[in-house]
Amino acid sequence: MNETELNEILDAAWRRPLTEAEQAALADWARRHPAQRAEMEAVLAVSRGLEGLPAPTASSNFMSRVWREVEAGERIESRPGQASASGAGPRLWRLWLPRFATGLVAVAIAGGSWWRYEAGRRALIVRGITAAANVDDSPDLAMLREFEAIKILGEAPASVDVELLAALQ
């Protein structure tokens, strides 16, 4: 047996029970390659262990149970009203009604807060507009003609004011 054949047997050991010939070939390989003996023994042991795993058999009424479940599902689907009567409806309501109510309350609170914020903002705008509307008429145009001079006076250093006062005196 060459290595390729060995690997095929090792792979087969995981997939199906090994034949007597395959087991003998593996044992023979292990004898000729003592370093790999433990490995071969482990594979053989696992193969036998896998073979012995419990394999439950289907009960004789398996098919009829499948049909019963299929038909029960079809009955419920064909008569939606039955869903409530069978308890699925009430269960759903019990599950979702509290969540729906909680969500509704959260939305109401958020909506109320938003409405109050908006009302406050609108009131502020109205007050501003009202205040602006009550401001006196614009100053006389003659005053605006001196605007540049007044502006420059504002930017001049304080010493200029002192000099001007001294000149006036």
């Binding site: 044992a27 003592p34 003996r37 433990a38 023994e41 482990a42 053989l44 042991a45 696992v46 036998r48 262990g49 896998l50 012995g52 795993l53 419990p54």
Partner: peptide, 23 residues
């Protein structure tokens, strides 16, 4: 160990149980 193969080393049920547990 060198002179024995797994079938001799372990009772079958025990081996199956170990493999089952490992899986």
């Amino acid at each position: 160990v060198a002179s024995l193969m797994p079938s001799d080393l372990l009772a079958r049920d025990e081996l199956v149980q170990k493999v089952d547990e490992a899986i």
